[in-house]
Design a protein around this nucleic acid. Structure first.
Lengths: 341, 341
DNA sequence: AAATTTCTGATTTACGTACATCAGAATTCG
DNA sequence: CGAATTCTGATGTACGTAAATCAGAAATTT
């Protein structure tokens, strides 16, 4: 049988009340007594029954998700998953609130973060825009002992507790190898479509992509990056223009969102050309394009996993518990037309 | 606030004892009263607090994992993950027992399954060998209201509650497309190394592989399947022989375990030939081979996820609860040298 | 209608923890 | 050394559910 607080009391030769004071860091215990209790806890290997504790406390975990607005399917999916998590709130003892901020806009994000100060939250998850101000605002929350998790895009250099997202450098490298090998030795130009170089995930994907391209596929030439701001309309315009202006393009890597526009541009010229295309994020549009051959591979991060992982990590961090590392690694999914879920 | 048993009692106009009798299917309640209570439960949207119930019951979930013996890294990994799950037993209220049976041996598996009859388990997970007897034995357990989950290899046609593993047809198809596209139009022979055609997962992988190969890569010819019984030694011998006897082989698909032997065979002839190789299961050996270029892609199923998912599903099934479907889908991981974890 | 049998209600204890209160012990201070 | 302060113990209630007991009510049988 698992040891309980009574066993601690017996082992340490103190009363239950004292054990409780030690366990819950309440005042009124002499140092020597406290150490005696702590020794007993270690000796008998006591671990608090979190379920029972939460029941007694009537605890709920107030969590905030700060999400960027944006008219692209990936963000819609992320919202959906957070709302799904909300429907599980009663079971999971969470109280989830969504805060919307404009995409790629650091000041708004900072304001949103600062508004959370002093709110006694069990955790904050945010899609980080990479800027020093944001880093500082995150650090302020962490200093208040609020668990902070970055979602989708990380904020290295900050003191955030955890990052729930894929390794974007690896994603870029993988995209490069897929594209390079699928092109099988052909020579030509590669166009890269990004959302914005202001977010770390996009920068990292590009970095990984470019490095593998340079090192292993010298016959492929990288064209200057197109910034589509994750907006389908802009993406469509940029890609259409690029394709009509350069007949040497044989491959496209779209590392951001807004692929609806890219696909429209591709369909307009597809008959005429033989393009190999690798994109990010599985949505209804990219799925259809993968199935009909417009796209050759989709790299994906499972938004549902990211959200569930973020929730688990925030709860565990709030309780000072540790997590199952392997379970919280967000994996890069690679979809070909054959392994679509 | 979430409704409790007291709310049910008040809403139905009965006592707490009666509510308890209905909730826990205890006798001594008239049909009309029972229906009144059940109506109240639905009306106020009561859901049992499983944590509190488990606390009151002192419930533990006795689970059995039936695993095949075998000297290959994938099975070692599976064992390791189940043992990891055992270390979490106190937190998760599980009591996990491992039963070992010889691999690819249906009668032993049947005996192991039948030995579990009448044992009042909260769940049984097994790596299924595909045979009618096994199906029947599984059905017997299910008939006893014991949750049964197949792991890694499924048992369609049986009444098992859940399958915790990848879609193996999709895996085979994916392997075919990767191999076909990586070979970029070259013409030649493809060798397939399997473990045994007695297990469903291997048959399905082959089926998926062959169908995409035939439909989309007619320039590649499939050689007869080599059966290595997931044993490194046998695999080594078979592949070495095949390679020395046929100089047209340009691709290899290894859909089972025992890749240690395959890699040894490859290293012996690697200088001389240009082979594209796709294998299953990420182990220390396949990882190293992927990194040094001996292997081009590894398809993987995450044993840790499979085990954790199996545990979650068995517990939920035992409680008559439902699971988060997306969370329990075991995904096919595709690893290139760039996205190794 | 009386005697059974079957239901139902009221009440209590328990699970492991949190938290509050109050009395008494130990320690420190003046 | 007594008073003030700080620590510790004893005890009770609560969280939401399970499970047991016993008395009394309702339904059924004779």
């Amino acid at each position: 049988m698992r040891p309980t607080v009574y066993d601690i009391a017996a082992a340490a030769g103190v009363s239950l009340a004292t054990v409780d004071r030690v366990l819950n860091r309440r005042p009124g215990v002499r140092l020597v007594t406290r150490e005696k209790v702590e020794a007993a806890i270690r000796d008998i290997g006591y671990v608090r029954d979190v379920a029972a504790a939460n029941l007694a406390k009537g605890r709920v975990y107030p969590l905030v998700f700060i999400l960027p607005t944006g008219d692209n399917s990936f963000m819609h999916g992320l919202y959906t998953e957070v709302r799904q998590a909300m429907t599980r709130s009663t079971f999971e003892r969470t109280a989830i609130q969504i805060v919307e901020v404009p995409a790629f806009h650091a000041p708004a994000l900072v304001a949103a973060l600062d508004a959370l100060q002093g709110m006694d939250l069990a955790g904050v998850a945010l899609v980080a825009t990479d800027a020093p101000d944001v880093r500082a605002a995150v650090d302020r929350l962490v200093a208040e002992r609020i668990p902070v998790v970055t979602l989708v895009s990380d904020l290295t250099g900050s003191t955030r507790h955890h990052y729930a997202g894929v390794d974007n450098i690896a994603a870029g490298r993988t995209a490069a190898r897929l594209l390079g090998r699928f092109l099988g030795g052909r020579k030509g130009d590669i166009t890269v479509l990004a959302g914005s170089m202001l977010v770390r995930d996009h920068r990292e994907r590009l970095e990984g992509f470019a490095s593998v391209m340079a090192a292993e596929f010298p016959q492929l030439r990288l064209l200057p990056v197109l910034e589509g701001r994750d907006d389908p309309e802009i993406a469509n315009a940029l890609v259409s223009e690029a394709l009509s202006g350069n007949s040497d393009i044989i491959g496209i890597y779209s590392l951001g969102a807004g692929n609806r526009g890219l696909i429209r541009a591709l369909n307009a010229t597809r008959q005429a050309r033989d393009l190999t295309v690798v994109v990010h994020e599985l949505t209804e549009h990219t799925r259809a394009a993968l199935q009909n051959g417009t796209i050759d591979a989709v790299l994906n991060q499972d938004a549902g996993h990211e959200v569930r992982s973020a929730v688990r990590v925030m709860k565990a961090t709030a309780d000072g518990q540790d997590v199952i590392a392997g379970q919280e690694r967000i994996r890069l999914d690679i979809f070909l037309k054959d392994n679509l879920p």
